[in-house]
Amino acid sequence: MLLTFGRPFYAPASNRTKGGARVATETSNAIDVQNAVKRYGDFTALKRVSLSIRDNEFFTLLGPSGCGKTTLLRMIAGFEDVTEGAIHLFGDDIVTLPPHKRPINTVFQNYALFPHMTVLDNVGFGLEMLGSTKSEARARAGEVLEMVQLSQFAARKPSQLSGGQQQRVALARALAPRPKVLLLDEPLSALDLKLRKAMQIELKHLQRDTGITFIFVTHDQEEALTMSDRIAVMSAGEVQQLGDAREIYDRPRNMFVADFIGETNLLEVTVDTVTDGQAACHLGGGNRLTCDAVEGIGQGAKVHMSLRPERLTLSADPTQGDSLKGRVRENIFSGTDISTILDLADGPEFRVRAPNSSRGDRRTFDPGTEVFVNMEQGAARLLID
């Protein structure tokens, strides 16, 4: 259920083109957050957060409940005061601006549609409040409803629409005033899994076609990886790591990011040597592994190592390169994948995942079988605890 959106109806200044070439402006950042702090009495919800969100970027704030991501979003929107620090929109300080004077709109989790109004009136209502005439508001509402392919539902009430359709009405309403930035506070969480996955792609297409900066809040790791140009992973009021999806997944900085993003095996290791950018490590019982060195982790350090289960294979005999010895406990079939749980000879429970396919040389072994875990080059990652 993918949508093909029409002609972009708005592009921020730094996104506009002249003769096919991008026109440079004074700043390429839509939002700059500088040492932002938010306190509620003695509790600090946000601890000196600094980050920049680029113009025309799909940027995601990702983290568990209570990590500070929604607090930061509400501070950008103006719904929460900034205790300390600054927030700039295209170079202008907006900390003292009330929400209605910020060229920013928000799509909430519950959509907040007016049940007694038609879809067209819901979308046009905000425009009238901003000073548009009724005819101007209706014309503009019609444009954005066409963009999200809901023109045929313009005369219906929200209760006559599905959850996905209601969400698109909420998006159309938020986009109608041509905001410079659109904030989305977990807007997909109320949808069922299949519709949520379809809407992820639709949202990314919408952001790309409009040229508007989207700032998306979610606790769903897969959702963030699917849609985002960049992701800020948050925990306990701080940004743990900021980067694109592949960087966050393949090169997590610390244990929290490695464990929170996707699935991983965490091993306690000791670094024996660091030579030519490679760190030689060993587990407690003698299994040895080599991986890329990480700045700040030197010889003798006791740290954790992350190994993604899909980058591992099993064999009856050790292969060339690093291998870990273990015994199979069970195999778990999950449709697209088969996960093998095993106990390492000198470590914790360990997981290896392979696609459910007859192609290739990946094998499964019966419970109780002694096997070797082999890893792709670059699969092991040292973590700053």
Results as ranks from 00 to 15, higher is better:
residue 6 G to M: 07
residue 17 T to M: 11
residue 34 Q to M: 04
residue 38 K to P: 01
residue 40 Y to D: 12
residue 42 D to G: 12
residue 42 D to F: 09
residue 43 F to K: 12
residue 51 L to P: 08
residue 58 F to V: 06
residue 61 L to F: 14
residue 63 G to N: 12
residue 68 G to K: 02
residue 70 T to I: 12
residue 72 L to F: 02
residue 78 G to Y: 07
residue 82 V to G: 00
residue 88 H to N: 14
residue 89 L to N: 06
residue 94 I to D: 01
residue 103 P to G: 06
residue 105 N to E: 09
residue 106 T to A: 13
residue 113 L to P: 11
residue 117 M to L: 15
residue 117 M to C: 10
residue 120 L to D: 15
residue 122 N to P: 02
residue 123 V to G: 01
residue 123 V to K: 01
residue 125 F to V: 00
residue 136 E to M: 03
residue 147 M to H: 10
residue 150 L to R: 00
residue 152 Q to V: 11
residue 152 Q to D: 15
residue 153 F to P: 11
residue 153 F to G: 02
residue 157 K to R: 15
residue 165 Q to L: 04
residue 166 Q to Y: 02
residue 173 R to D: 01
residue 177 P to E: 03
residue 181 V to G: 02
residue 188 L to Q: 05
residue 197 K to C: 02
residue 198 A to R: 10
residue 200 Q to V: 04
residue 203 L to F: 05
residue 208 R to V: 09
residue 209 D to R: 14
residue 217 V to C: 08
residue 225 L to N: 01
residue 225 L to K: 05
residue 230 R to I: 04
residue 232 A to V: 01
residue 240 Q to V: 07
residue 245 A to F: 04
residue 245 A to W: 05
residue 246 R to T: 13
residue 247 E to F: 08
residue 251 R to L: 11
residue 252 P to T: 11
residue 262 G to E: 02
residue 268 E to M: 07
residue 287 N to P: 10
residue 289 L to E: 00
residue 297 I to R: 08
residue 298 G to M: 09
residue 300 G to E: 08
residue 300 G to F: 08
residue 301 A to Y: 06
residue 301 A to L: 11
residue 306 S to F: 03
residue 309 P to C: 08
residue 315 S to E: 09
residue 318 P to K: 06
residue 326 G to S: 05
residue 333 F to L: 11
residue 334 S to N: 13
residue 337 D to S: 14
residue 344 L to R: 00
residue 344 L to M: 01
residue 345 A to M: 08
residue 346 D to R: 02
residue 351 R to G: 00
residue 352 V to D: 00
residue 359 R to Y: 12
residue 370 E to G: 11
residue 374 N to S: 08
residue 380 A to Q: 03
residue 381 R to N: 07
